[in-house]
Design a protein around this nucleic acid. Structure first.
Length: 1081
RNA sequence: GCCGAAGUGGCGGAAUGGCAGACGCACUGGAUUCAAAAUCCAGCGAGGUUUACUCCUCGUGCGGGUUCGACUCCCGCCUUCGGCACCA
């Protein structure tokens, strides 16, 4: 017997031999039971689904008259690491919905593909010399293998990669659409969705050309069009990452480092492609409204867009001849007189007494020589005045004349669309505080800074600008640091009262927001207050806080004592004071009134700004879509600045063959090293062209993939409009919250452009969005020890400084060592875990994000190998709500595997050496109880799947098994529906059992079991009885029993009656079949 | 600092105004076994109480409130996680 000991059977499930030697059969029958063999079953059914094209949606099915459901997983990047356990979480959820929906009779579109351009493959190429495409397609093969191994019901016939020329041909085509579009913000129209909108992306050919531009000829018109396209080129400081050899979008820079790799990023002015997403800011914000997305994600997007309403206002600075660049305030009339007298004496060479009468404000200026009016012509007077200006860099009269002229011109011409050179344009949300402006601030990069800087300030200003240019955006915008700035020496005139306002530069004003210049109202803005206090600039309050106004923490933090009085900024709404004719107006009324008034005078207009910036759309790397754009060259081979787009017929512009992928080390794109035949061409008319050598960012390919899945093989269009109409929008879109702003905003933007241009009929791509939560590593217990090996309580440990030890003591800053503890070293005390041996030492108990460095990464391959795909799928769904962040726990997977094995034994006979039905499964009529169990399960599972609460669905399936397994016989009539209920979640096991129950075809299209509410009604119910709201007993009643019956039965309960004795029943609360409560005194 | 989400046994979680802790894990005891694995059965918030069946008190981050009744609704705080962070 001993030699019959089948040691090999203790190995993994799949190594159990199917046939065993006869002589050992008695023992081996027991040993060799066909227990639940996940590996065999899963491989079998995956092969079946493939062979039968079970989940491929062919044209006939797609055209069928059934409700459609488009369920999409966020496009994965097929990394070399392979699948992470986070991926199957969302994928399983959508797979369950799809399988369930097919059984409900819906036609389901559920595709999968690859977002495969990007840096990692290119970095691998640099290291190894292999072409990025090689590694990319290898990774894709591995990813596909892993996904197939999990049994997801994707329609693999629709698979594609963004790197396929057949796909990026259409990415380039869509780029050309964007390039061919300008945004008309005032255009009113009704879209195919029947909604009225203001603002539309229109063909560039429809752009009205101003007469003066048209007069300059064809090239001027082209340049004007290029400036107005949704895809345009722009020279601006951008985030240049030398390590990655590319520029990055603002969104790809985190804390001054690159999102990918964490390399330093510097600011450099470069010519880059931009997409004018800000034009769609309003619609991207407003049209979030109707989407079935988590409110928190909508809010995140709204905040990201950051719409603000206010006004643009021009502050006069004079043209070159009339610079206001001295301290006007120091100029008393006497000083001005003296200046002008000096100028006149010099110019007219007149001895004797010279006197000016009038100052230009009250009437014409006259020059008296020895008391006699010389009746000088305005030209001569102007010359004298001009000299005075030249002598002293400020001239009140000159300024005053220019100022009046300027205002007059403005009143006639209206507010210019583009800022003019004679004024600083500011953006403010509080035009009602114009009377409180005591200084202005330009961003250090503002183009007017040089003009406005006076000689004395030149050195300081230049130094400040130099330092600012070296700082990263992050350093400059760190809210915590104290404000810095330099006075330029220049002044501007406040449009509401002509008061001169000193102009500063400071890096708290960003060149990329608004107009890059602000009017500062320290009394009513916390930033301006802080700055004004630091530089002793006057603070003029012009808004009265309402009675009982509660100052915010920010405001209170800036409080200061002046003459024994506490002063602080007031940034809220109130009543205007000290504001000329507007005094007494409430803030909002003031705002609209002054905006209108400024507009009437051509001094300002209502304006909207976005925190969102235009999308920096070019990269300098190889592994991305080439732009379908050519640059015209002049005789010397220099770009003329004019562009030509490829025609659709010329697409795709494929990547040139290259062997060297090393970055150029400069912002010169890698594609500039491409072969000349790719880079240059000559048109029939002799025009030399050079290709655009930037490539598109990774986001491009993922912006529209959901549309291509609808019609992936179409060679005539990116998608057939009829099919798009049928399938869009995506009905359920599941993925991680890390794409809350970028991907989701970018694809909504592209979608809207294509909508405006009439290519698709829906304004939004994704109807319902669900964010799956993150899966953390297994929970860890961590204790801390100091250098001497003494335990330190966990609440005394804190993160060490960057580059230093990982943990330090909160007080002494000594480095601490973290020690991983086991469960038996630790005990719970109150709310804390403490060392069992030293209960005064608390320890950390936490799950951390999975990371290679922490060594807590769970590999789906090994989970599947050990427990099977169904177990992995079910476990990920059982962990908790889909949206929640939750820690992994390997024994939880074992628990699920045990459940699946129990399901197996409920239906299959594991004592036999081949797969047969359990003899307990019989064709008998189910009992009423069994029917109730089944129908309760159908009800809970159906509702649970509709609500995506898979964890409770699985609980209910477990309860079914717990209830039914001990029973014999087990009626087939309840087991078959059970298998169908299980099938969306554990499809391989369900198919195997379905076959075992005698079916010859897949259950994928079996009708979903319907529940009969009649069968759920129980004849007898147990309800709780409370006395004074506290539970005192439970009574059994016939279903639907009335209050009298319930009270009688309840009073008969000894414990209830005991609690009622000596008390008076004041009131009885009774809810039929739910509860009974005696309110007693 | 601002915005958002969440705090329930040893752990993951269930219950969204009506029996707190379903279901699973871990743990404890038992059955089976030569033994182990697997499986099956029972117990499992804390404290008190009864020979026993029991019964009582407390308990959903903390403090208040509304209600016959609150994990659930309202007000104020604390903690953790995520996002934003000089956006005029």
């Amino acid at each position: 017997m001993a030699n019959c000991q089948p040691t090999e059977y203790t190995g993994p499930l799949d190594s159990v031999p199917r046939k065993t030697p006869r002589q050992c059969s008695i023992l081996l029958k027991k040993r060799n039971m066909p227990r639940y063999e996940a590996r065999r079953i899963e491989a079998k059914w995956q092969a079946y689904w493939d062979a039968h094209h079970t989940f491929e949606l062919n044209a006939a099915q797609a055209a069928a008259d059934q409700p459609k459901l488009y369920v999409l997983d966020m496009f994965p990047y097929p990394s070399g690491e392979g699948l992470h356990v986070g991926h199957p979480e969302g994928y399983t959820a959508t797979d369950i919905v799809c399988r369930y929906s097919r059984m409900l009779g819906k036609k389901v579109l559920h595709p999968m593909g690859w977002d495969a351009f990007g840096l990692p493959a290119e970095e691998y190429a640099i290291k190894t010399g292999t072409h990025p495409a090689v590694k990319t397609y290898e990774n894709i093969d591995n990813f596909r293998r892993q996904l197939k191994m999990l049994g997801f019901s994707y329609d693999w016939s629709r698979e594609f990669s963004t790197t396929d020329p057949d796909y990026y041909r259409w990415t380039q085509w869509i780029f050309l659409q964007i390039f061919d579009t300008w945004y008309d913000p005032t255009f009113e129209w009704t879209g195919p969705d029947g909604k009225m909108r203001t603002g539309k992306g229109r063909p560039i050919a429809e752009l009205p050309i101003p007469l003066d531009v048209a007069a300059q000829g064809h090239d001027a018109v082209r340049r004007y069009q290029d400036k107005n396209r949704l895809a345009y080129q722009h020279e601006a400081p951008v985030n240049w990452c030398p390590e990655l050899g590319t520029v990055l979008a603002n969104e790809e820079v985190i804390d001054g480092k690159s999102d990918r790799g964490g390399y330093p990023v510097e600011r450099r002015p470069l010519r880059q492609w931009m997409l004018r997403i800000t034009s769609y800011g309003d619609r991207l914000g407003n049209e979030l409204e109707e989407l079935n997305w988590p409110e928190s994600i909508k809010l995140l997007q709204r905040n990201w867009i950051g719409r603000s309403e206010g006004a643009e206002v021009d502050f006069f600075i004079g043209t070159t001849g009339h610079q206001i660049s001295g301290d006007v305030r120091s100029l008393t009339p006497a000083v001005i007189q003296a200046d002008m007298v000096n100028a006149a004496r010099k110019q007219l060479e007149l001895p004797g007494e010279i006197k000016f009468v009038g100052d230009g404000r009250t009437g014409p200026v006259r020059l008296l020589h020895n008391g006699q009016d010389l009746n000088l012509s305005p030209e001569v007077l102007g010359k004298i005045v001009g000299q005075a200006v030249a002598q002293r860099s400020q001239d009140v009269i000159g300024t005053d004349i220019a100022w009046k002229e300027w205002k007059k011109t403005r009143a006639e011409s209206g507010f210019p669309k583009e800022p003019t050179a004679d004024a600083i344009r500011v953006y403010t949300t509080r035009p009602d505080t114009l009377f409180g402006v005591t200084y202005m601030v330009l961003s250090p990069e503002h183009p007017f800074v040089d003009r406005l800087t006076t000689g004395a300030q030149k050195g300081a200003v230049e130094e400040y600008r130099r330092l600012a240019s070296l700082k990263s955006e992050r350093d400059r915008t760190d809210a915590g640091k104290t404000k810095t700035g330099v006075f330029t020496g220049g002044y501007a005139l406040n449009p509401v009262n002509g008061q001169p306002v000193p102009i500063w530069i400071a890096d708290y004003v960003l060149s990329s927001y608004g107009t890059g210049a602000i009017m500062a109202v320290p009394a009513h803005d916390v930033r301006d207050w802080e700055f004004a206090v630091k530089f002793a600039i006057p603070i003029t309050p012009v808004v009265q806080a309402p009675a009982g106004y509660e100052y915010s923490k920010e405001e209170r933090d800036l409080a200061r004592e002046v003459n024994g009085q506490t002063e602080m900024p007031f940034a809220g709404l109130g009543t205007a004071t000290n504001s000329g004719p507007y005094s007494g107006l409430p803030t909002l009324e003031f705002k609209s009134k002054i905006s209108a008034e400024l507009n009437a005078q051509g001094l300002g207009k209502i304006a909207v700004n976005y925190r969102l910036r235009d999308w920096l759309f070019s990269r300098q790397r190889y592994w991305g879509e080439p732009f379908p754009i050519w640059h015209e060259l002049d005789k010397d081979g220099q770009p003329t600045g004019l562009m030509r787009a490829d025609t659709p017929a010329e697409l795709p512009v494929t990547l040139p063959p290259m062997a060297d992928f090393k970055p150029t080390g400069t912002p010169e794109p890698l594609l500039s090293k491409a072969p000349a035949e790719w880079l240059y061409k000559t048109l029939p008319d002799g025009t030399r062209l050079k290709r655009e050598t930037n490539s598109m960012p990774q986001w491009a390919g993922s912006c529209w993939y959901y549309m291509r899945f609808i019609d992936p093989k179409n060679h005539q269009a990116f998608v057939d409009p009829e099919l798009a109409k049928q399938w869009l929008p995506v009905d359920l879109y599941v993925g991680g919250a890390e794409h809350a702003v970028l991907h989701l905003l970018y694809s909504r933007f592209w979608h809207k452009v294509l909508f405006d241009r009439g290519h698709i009929g829906t304004p939004e791509p994704f109807g319902r969005l669900v964010n799956q939560g993150m899966i953390l590593g297994e929970a860890e217990l961590t204790g801390y020890q100091d250098a001497a090996g003494q335990w330190v309580p966990a609440n005394m440990a804190t993160d060490g400084p960057e580059g230093g030890p990982a943990h330090v003591h909160k007080q002494s800053s000594q480095p601490l060592t973290s020690i991983k503890l086991t469960a038996d070293q630790v005990t719970k005390q109150g709310n804390d875990f403490v060392l069992a041996a030293q209960t005064e030492i608390s320890v950390d108990s936490r799950a951390y994000k999975m990371s290679k460095s922490r060594g807590n990464v769970i590999n789906p391959d090994s989970v599947v190998k050990e427990y099977g795909a169904d177990a992995l799928r079910l476990y990920e769904m059982f962990m908790g709500p889909l949206e929640a962040t939750k820690p992994w726990n390997m024994s939880g997977v074992e628990g699920i595997a045990r459940f699946l094995a129990r399901v197996w034994r409920m239906i299959a006979d594991e004592r036999q050496d081949h797969v047969v039905l359990n003899p307990a499964v019989q064709d008998v009529t189910p009992t009423v109880e069994q029917m109730r169990t089944l129908h309760k399960t159908i009800a809970v599972v159906t509702q649970g799947l509709d609500a995506l609460s898979f964890n409770t669905v699985i609980s209910r399936l477990m309860e079914f098994v717990n209830e039914i397994t001990p029973q014999e016989p087990r009626p087939r009539a309840i087991l078959e529906p059970f298998v169908l209920l299980l099938s969306p979640l554990a499809p391989h096991l369900a198919e195997e059992l379905w076959e075992l129950l005698g079916h010859t075809q897949t259950l994928a299209y079996e009708p979903w079991p319907q529940f009969d509410p009649q069968l759920l009604v129980e004849s007898e119910v147990e309800i709780p009885v409370q006395v004074g709201g506290k539970l005192r007993g439970r009574i059994k009643l016939p279903a639907g029993a009335n209050q009298e019956t319930a009270e009688a039965v309840a009073k008969a309960d000894p414990n209830v009656s005991q609690h009622l004795t000596g008390k008076q029943i004041v009131k009885v609360i009774f809810v039929v079949d739910r509860m009974l409560n005696f309110v007693a005194k």
